[in-house]
Each structure stands twice: as C-alpha cells, then as structure tokens.
C-alpha cells in the first residue's frame, strides 16, 4: 500500500523480495545497500538467527530521487525463505506494492522454487491480492553456478505469465539493479494507472 504524503511531498512504496530459503534475497539487499550512495539509503536492518538465516525480515529504505517534485522512497523487505516461517512471511506481504520472486537456478532447488512460488500466490490471495495483478518481476539467481538450469527451462516453470525476468548473480551484483529498477518502474507505472 503506497503512502502519498502531499504535505511532505513524498511517495512511499513497499517492495518485497520473496523466494525459497538460501536463494539470495538478503544478498540482493546487501548488494543494493553496498552500492547505493550514503545519502540515498538508510540503515539496513536484518532480523536474523545466529547462523545468519533471516528470522523475520531484512529492511532497507532507499530514496530514488524526485519525480515531478515528489521524493520517491522505496522500502525493500525480504521474507524468511525457510518453509516453517510461513506465518512471518504472511505478515511481511501486508501492504505490498510490488514483489520480486528470487529463484535459485540450481537444479536441486527447482522443487523449492516451485513450492515457494505456490506459497507466494497463496499468501497473497489470503491478503486479498492477486499475483497477476501486482507489479511483479522474477529473478533467476546464481547463474554463475555450474549446476544452473537453463533459463528457458526456469522460465517455463516459474514465469508462465511472462513477467519481466532477469538473470542474476547477487553475490557479484550482476542483474541486481536491473531487477530492482524493473520492479520500481512497474510500481510507479501502476500508481499512475491507479489514479
């Protein structure tokens, strides 16, 4: 749910990175954090376990600049990917403006990808959203690994509706900003349509 503040001349939007455990959602945010000018970002917060697995969420506030005199601010969130944190995932989807599904390209994570995508669809429905009507992009992460499934195959299974999708290697940052930009652009376009 975007928040438009005419008084402070700000547009605030919430983007959520979703995907199976260890697919690289937090790594996406860390890369964005490391590569963003200090004045354009706030502190990155990670609520993680001692073994650095996301327990509740990561949070990164980004400010992209002005559009027609309005400051655009994006709040980036990740969900915990592990299956048993489903209750927490549902909470984080509340009020979402756009979703990025981060898929793990490795063959052995294919089933986890499918399960997580089904879970995303289901959890959104519970909140009264439809994935097909939300600003939505898909990222095929870990393209650098030798056991990565060809993109065509991933696309067939994980992106049947043909939303914008990107190949990425979140550790080195390849594709990370392309994914974010595509999603932010869709969210802003959606705001324009909604008026």
């Amino acid at each position: 749910m975007s928040f438009i503040n005419y008084s402070a001349r700000e547009i605030n939007c919430k983007l959520v990175y979703y995907g199976p455990g260890l697919c690289g959602k937090t790594t996406n945010l860390q890369f964005i954090y490391n590569k963003t000018r200090p004045d354009a970002k706030g502190k990155m917060i990670s609520l993680a376990t001692e073994t650095e697995r996301t327990l509740f969420f990561d949070f990164l506030p980004l400010s992209l600049g002005e559009i027609r005199g309005f400051k655009t601010r994006f709040h980036l969130y990740t969900v915990p990917g592990q299956v048993f944190y489903d209750a927490s995932r549902k909470l984080i989807l509340k009020g979402v403006d756009g979703v990025c599904f981060v898929a793990d390209s490795q063959l052995e994570r294919m089933e986890a990808n499918i399960e997580s995508l089904d879970n995303l669809r289901f959890n959104l429905q519970e909140q009264g959203y439809e994935l097909d009507k939300l600003p939505y992009v898909v990222q095929y992460n870990k393209r650098d690994l030798p056991n990565a499934v060809p993109v065509e195959e991933l696309r067939e299974v994980l992106n049947p509706t043909g939303v914008p999708d990107y190949e990425a290697c979140a550790v080195t940052g390849e594709g990370v900003f392309d994914t974010l930009k595509a999603l932010a652009k869709q969210v802003l376009t959606e705001l324009r349509k909604g008026q």
Binding site: F3, N5, A8, G194
Partner: peptide, 15 residues
C-alpha cells in the same frame, strides 16, 4: 485487488 493507498494532506498532518 490492490490495497487502498494512504494519502496525507497538509491540514490533517498539522493536526
């Protein structure tokens, strides 16, 4: 369905 967005105006914000 998209959630209704929140809009804030000068007058209410000052209140």
């Amino acid at each position: 369905m998209l959630n209704a967005q929140m809009v804030m105006y000068e007058e209410e914000l000052s209140e």
